[in-house]
Amino acid sequence: MKLYEYAARRMALLVFVLLGVTLLTFILSRVLLDPLAAYVTEKTNPNAIPAIKRMHGFDRPPWEQYFFYLRDLFTLDLGWSKVGHMSIVDAIATYFPATAELTIVAIIITLLVGIPLGVVSALKNNQLADHASRVFSLIGISIPVFWLGLSLQYFFTYWIKMAYGLPALPSTGRYDPVLAINTGFKKITGFIMLDSLIQGNLIMAGDALAHLILPAITLAFLNIGVITRLTRSSMLEVLRQDYVTMAKAYGLPQRLVIYKYALKNALIPVVSATGLMFGGLLGGAIMTESIFAFPGMGWLSYRAIVYNDSNTVLAYVVVASIIYVVVNLVVDIVYAWLDPRIKY
């Protein structure tokens, strides 16, 4: 079977997975949360409630509601997001790009730091560099996100400015709105970095990147520990393999042996871990986004849960699961490319 056939078959299966997800989340949200809550406030006339119920179909039997819900899903008519003050489709289009940008930057930092650290750790097994990197990754795994986030804010937006007069890094939001107006920035895709680069607005791009640094480091810190440890153990395992001896026996230069022959084998488990991280982060990092007042999916869903906004919760879960399943598919395809032994 060819790789694209495999991808196509997995796509077909994806439909059923997502149907299951919608059914589950539908039951959970319509049973546990009152869907009406999104459409009423304390000021709503109680006499109007039956009419509102009828208007949104909440008076119908649940299975009928589910079919209407599926229809709405396909027509991208997901209702009103109370916490977002806009339609849910608009809310996702607004909040998702923020999370995606944050995730991509966080993953890039994670891999750029984690993989080299793991490789060095494996090569200098039980030497000082190895111990240092192991302590570092252990710290990364152990530090609570809220503490790290607040500490970074304190040091990089307050302390370095107060103590040394250095320029501070922004600690909240995605970009400076005043700067956006002054430089004539326009939203196109919702990805601030991408939009500003399209418009050739380097000042905005720099500003957006500056806003991403602290939350991305916060997110990356935990994952760096995971990736470093995984790369280290996987690399150690691979360096003991016979094919590494073989490569050495043929006098191949050490960098070729390590960075080509060993590393490609060692990265196989790292790819799957990265994929899971990617999927998890794209769903939104609730804690990190809340600390940095970063308007992403995590922040939206957190508020939706607190304010009993079942429409938004439902949409969030569906979006997060689609992302997760698609990322998993991509991981499997990358996997098949990395390791030709995998049968699919």
């Binding site: 016979d242 094919y243 073989m246 026996a249 084998n265």
Partner: peptide, 11 residues
């Protein structure tokens, strides 16, 4: 080497 399966790089 002895076992050509483990001495050739699988990837």
């Amino acid at each position: 080497f002895q076992d050509p399966h483990t001495y050739l790089n699988p990837v």
